[in-house]
Structure formats: structure tokens, C-alpha cells
């Protein structure tokens, strides 16, 4: 039984208090008068704020929200990379992490070698990896390039390799961070098919993205984040509407403030 539970999860980052450079971090401007305010570095950043949810097999969830809303932090917390500051995360199922393309790859090693390394990192035995190598190679369609160091690859090629490696061993939970965008249309199609198949087969997909079309295609439910808080969890269309409304309000609010400042 595959599931992912967050119970009142908060994550706080402590920024390095660099006492030697403290002077530079003080606000240089208070925001009074014509000039916009400049900030000093915060001591702590609350990246996730009391987030609770439970998702189960077959769920395809999109994480929506502006940059810095906590989407990537949530994915990394679900993967066990960021331990929670408070609360509890419970995961059942094998997790596949598809974060930044370069993470966990050796740029000087060949494509084939990276397939092996990524299998080993996922805890597979050499035999299990050997069984899958040809299938992974075929899925990437990289052909002879697989025998070259991956530093020679384009972003799209790296994406193909990473995606094929991460999804080859039938993970139960797929965590993806704004991703498929870099691939060409044909590969996106292929990747989507594989994702759908993996999830339909008792899996979970969590996809952080700003691409609304991709979200509509790949997910059925969505979470909306703002400043680390989970504001809304509903079906995709409802959340996208909520988001639009919130953004319009913010834009209007921002213009209003600016007008006020000018007249003052």
C-alpha cells in the first residue's frame, strides 16, 4: 500500500550568521520616502509552515505556487533529504527523485556508467541494473551518445537519461520538480505515458510546476502554496482559478500601494 502523509510539517532554514559580514546585511534603507526598502538577511526562513495532507495510491498531485512558496522544499522533505523541524512525514513505497538534472550524476562518466551509478544509488544490485540497462538505453534514444561522457550532453539529453534511469525500477512515488519542460515534444509525450502507467499501477506522482498545460495533462489534483503554507488542496481546475484570483489581487494591491506612495 503506497501512501505519503505529512502531519503538521514545518521546515526552518537557519541562514549562516556570518558575523564578519554583518554590516553588509543591515538594512541600508528603511523604505521611508521615495526609495524602495532594502532588506537585511533573515535569521531563519520558514520554508514549510504547518503542512498536513495525506495522499494515496493512484493520486497525481500538482504543487502550485509562486517561486519560493515551498514546493521544492516539500518534495525534498518527502524524499527524506530535508528532515522536518517539527511534525512528521510518513512514506510507504519506493521513491524516485527527479529534481535538478545534474544532481547525483557524474559529468565525466559516460551515459552507460551513469545508468549503473544511478541504479546503485537507488539501492539496486548489479544484476538488477544489468537487466535494465538495455531498456533504459532504448528509452533514452541516445544511442551511441551513451558511450560518451555526459558533460557533452545537452540539457534535453541529460533529462532523457535522468528520467529513464529514475523511472526504470518501477518506483511507487515519483517526486518531480519542474522538469519535463526541457524535453522535446516527442519525449514529453513518451515520459507522460510512462508516468501515467507508473501511477496507474498503484503509484503516486507529485509534480511541482508553473506550466499549467503540463499540470492539466499530468495531474488531477493540486495543492496551492504560499509562503510555505498549504492554502488549498482541490482538483486542478479549481486550484488554477484560485491561483489566478490571488495573483490578480496581488497585482492590484501592489499597484495600489505604489500609487499611494507616489501621492504621499
Amino acid at each position: 500500500m503506497t501512501y505519503l502523509k505529512f502531519k503538521n510539517v514545518s521546515i526552518e532554514f537557519h541562514t549562516h550568521s556570518d558575523f564578519l559580514k554583518n554590516k553588509e546585511l543591515r538594512p541600508t534603507n528603511t523604505g521611508e520616502g521615495e526609495q524602495p526598502k532594502r532588506y537585511s538577511a533573515p535569521k531563519t526562513i520558514r520554508a514549510l509552515d504547518d503542512v498536513s495532507f495525506e495522499i494515496n495510491r493512484g493520486d497525481r498531485i500538482a504543487l502550485l505556487g509562486r517561486n519560493g512558496a515551498g514546493k521544492s522544499t516539500l518534495l525534498k522533505a518527502a524524499a527524506g533529504i530535508f528532515p522536518p523541524t517539527s511534525g512528521e512525514i510518513e512514506v510507504q513505497g519506493e521513491v524516485a527523485e527527479l529534481f535538478n538534472v545534474g544532481l547525483g550524476m557524474r559529468m565525466e562518466a559516460t551515459g552507460y556508467r551513469n545508468i549503473t551509478l544511478s541504479g546503485l544509488a537507488a539501492g539496486k544490485s548489479r544484476e538488477e541494473i544489468e537487466e535494465k540497462v538495455d531498456e533504459i538505453a532504448e528509452f533514452t534514444e541516445l544511442g551511441r551518445f551513451l558511450a560518451l561522457p555526459i558533460r557533452t550532453y545537452s540539457n534535453g539529453m541529460l533529462l532523457r537519461l535522468k528520467f529513464a534511469c529514475s523511472t526504470a525500477f518501477n518506483p511507487d512515488i515519483i517526486l518531480m520538480d519542474e522538469w519535463l519542460g526541457a524535453g522535446d515534444a516527442e519525449f514529453r509525450q513518451k515520459a507522460n505515458e510512462r508516468l501515467t502507467k507508473l501511477v496507474a499501477d498503484a503509484g503516486i506522482l507529485m509534480l511541482a510546476s508553473h506550466n499549467k498545460n503540463m499540470v492539466r495533462r499530468a495531474c488531477e489534483k493540486a495543492m496551492y502554496f504560499e509562503h510555505g503554507k498549504l492554502l488549498d488542496f482541490d482538483n486542478v481546475e479549481t486550484i488554477i482559478r484560485t491561483m489566478k484570483r490571488a495573483q490578480q489581487q496581488q497585482t492590484r494591491g501592489g499597484q495600489g500601494r505604489r500609487r499611494n506612495q507616489q501621492s504621499a
Binding site: 500500500m1 503506497t2 501512501y3 522533505a77 527524506g80 528532515p83 522536518p84 523541524t85 517539527s86 511534525g87 512528521e88 512525514i89 510518513e90 512514506v91 510507504q92 513505497g93 519506493e94 535494465k132 531498456e135 532504448e138 528509452f139 518501477n170 511507487d172 510512462r194 502507467k197 507508473l198 499501477d201
Partner: peptide
């Protein structure tokens, strides 16, 4: 890519819990 490999039935691993306390 063969479809059969994706529908392999494997035993589910034990649940993992991440929390602020550590052993």
C-alpha cells in the same frame, strides 16, 4: 520498452518516518 516490466508486482517496503527526533 516492454510493458511487462512496469507492472511487476513487488512487495512494498516498510513505511519510513521522518521526524525531528533522532535515534
Amino acid at each position: 520498452m516492454s510493458d511487462s516490466t512496469i507492472t511487476d508486482i513487488r512487495p512494498s517496503p516498510e513505511p519510513v518516518i521522518y521526524q525531528p527526533k533522532q535515534s
